[in-house]
Amino acid sequence: MRENEISIEELSYELSIVLDGLLYYAGVAKTDLEEVANLYVECSDEALEGSDAQGVDEVIVIVEYLKQKYPQYFKKKGK
């Protein structure tokens, strides 16, 4: 592997951190990030069913789906 190439493991780790950050800023407590990240992966197909969202809009649709289906993990803004 060339020195400037990123391994699959490194990329997976970085994407995991990005997903945790995304969910944290969406209102998920740090203690629940792992569980909600797993839900994100598990529910992505279901959340996107019938949607024509692409790219970043897919992420938005999935997070909104999680907020509706699992509101207990998302704190209200300002609280």
Rank of each mutant, 00 (worst) to 15 (best):
K77T: 10
Y24N: 06
D57F: 10
I6G: 07
R2L: 15
K75W: 11
L23S: 07
I62M: 03
G27K: 01
G78S: 01
Y13N: 15
Y25I: 07
Q68A: 15
S7N: 08
P71F: 01
L39R: 03
N4H: 11
V41L: 06
V61D: 08
E35R: 05
K30C: 07
A37L: 00
A26K: 02
S44H: 11
L19Y: 02
L15K: 13
L48W: 03
N38H: 12
A53P: 03
S16A: 12
G27R: 05
Y70G: 02
A47D: 01
G50V: 04
L48T: 07
E58H: 07
A47M: 00
G78A: 08
S7T: 13
Y73G: 01
E34Q: 11
L39S: 00
T31I: 14
D20F: 12
G55V: 05
G50Q: 05
Y40G: 00
D32S: 08
Q68K: 15
P71L: 06
K75M: 05
Y70T: 00
I60F: 06
V28H: 01
G27I: 03
E58M: 14
I6P: 00
E46W: 10
E35K: 08
E10C: 01
A53N: 09
V59W: 02
K30Y: 09
Q72N: 04
K77A: 10
V28K: 01
E64F: 08
V28M: 02
A26V: 04
V28G: 00
E9T: 09
N4C: 14
G27P: 00
Q54V: 09
L19D: 02
V59H: 06
R2H: 13
E49M: 09
S7K: 12
K77W: 08
V28T: 02
E14H: 14
V56S: 14
R2V: 07
K69R: 15
Y40I: 01
Y25A: 09
Y25G: 03
Y65P: 03
F74R: 00
E42A: 14
M1R: 14
V63Y: 01
L22Y: 05
N4T: 15
I17S: 06
E10P: 09
A53Q: 03
I17N: 07
Y24T: 06
D52W: 09
V63T: 02
K76G: 05
F74D: 06
E46R: 12
K76W: 07
D32L: 07
K79P: 09
L33N: 00
A29E: 12
K67D: 04
S7L: 07
L15H: 12
S16W: 08
G27Q: 03
M1Q: 12
V59A: 11
T31Y: 04
A26Y: 00
C43S: 07
P71Y: 06
G27L: 04
E5V: 10
D57R: 14
I60R: 10
L11R: 15
D45H: 12
K77N: 10
V56K: 15
Q54T: 14
R2M: 14
I8K: 15
E64R: 14
L11Q: 14
I60Y: 10
S51I: 01
K76S: 07
V36Y: 05
N4W: 13
A47N: 02
E9W: 08
V59Y: 05
L11V: 10
L33Q: 00
